[in-house]
Design a protein around this nucleic acid. Sequence first.
DNA 1: ATTGAAATATGTTCGTA
DNA 2: TACGAACATATTTCAAT
Lengths: 156, 156
Amino acid sequence: MKSSNTTIKIDGIDKKILRYLMDDARKPILEIARNIGISGAAIHQRLRKLESSGLIAGSKFVVNPRVLGYSTMAYIGIYLDRAMSNPKAVKALEKIPEVLECHYTTGNWSILIKVLCKDNEHLMHVLNKKIQQIEGVSRTETFISLNQQIDRQIEI
Amino acid sequence: MKSSNTTIKIDGIDKKILRYLMDDARKPILEIARNIGISGAAIHQRLRKLESSGLIAGSKFVVNPRVLGYSTMAYIGIYLDRAMSNPKAVKALEKIPEVLECHYTTGNWSILIKVLCKDNEHLMHVLNKKIQQIEGVSRTETFISLNQQIDRQIEI
DNA sequence: ATTGAAATATGTTCGTA
DNA sequence: TACGAACATATTTCAAT
């Protein structure tokens, strides 16, 4: 496995294969093979190469949280006390299942997180009883996503 | 297909199946069947039910953008002129491939977007030549993600 | 909802070009 | 790299419980 810091080059066939699979991870390789006009074995081999290059990080089923009653998404900027170490805060945030992303950022805050909650009440609870309880968290700023209009991966 | 606003109930077996597939979309159903001790046909049927409920939104290969040289991620808060309609701005943002997410948010900004660029220079270019050029964009605030420490889906 | 079995389709390896 | 053929697995459907 190459270091993931290595930049690699991929050709047009690799791109076609990846576009199919980024859209539907379970699309049969043989079906892709028929579509782009090379053998299944060739695609198999290219996929192995792409995996070992680190470009393919894995595959996922994507779940629609709305169907489980989760409809309130928010970004929260967190101010940390200077004494509070970032890794310690991240450890605490990892234990909160509503926190889906966590970024160490430049700018106003120390940390920017994305949370997914059932409703505003749930969000309030996560904010007051979970995030504000973390030692070293001094203040937060919340931005509720009223509507997500774009959600995609990098263009291959 | 049920309306995606309908909340559904799933049992422990559904959860187990989903956890396997959310981690690896190409995991063979028969392998999951052997692991959790029911037949492949039963899993097949449950997956069809979960799909038609709308809970399963699809599946994706996950690509590691770093390997293609994309290593600068940032969130950008966008202030829109009052005259500028949100949908028009979103249309313009959709045409910028570096924009991976776009949220209509409460709080300071009209819009919060996530962008992925090769480096700071590339980010600067996207900001000045693409985003600031959009009609109605009055001001932006950029937060560079120095490090993403959490990235996950909802807990099933 | 679940099963096993049958039919069909796919994944994987390998020798060769 | 790519191919085709051979073999191993998986998917899908269905009648029965």
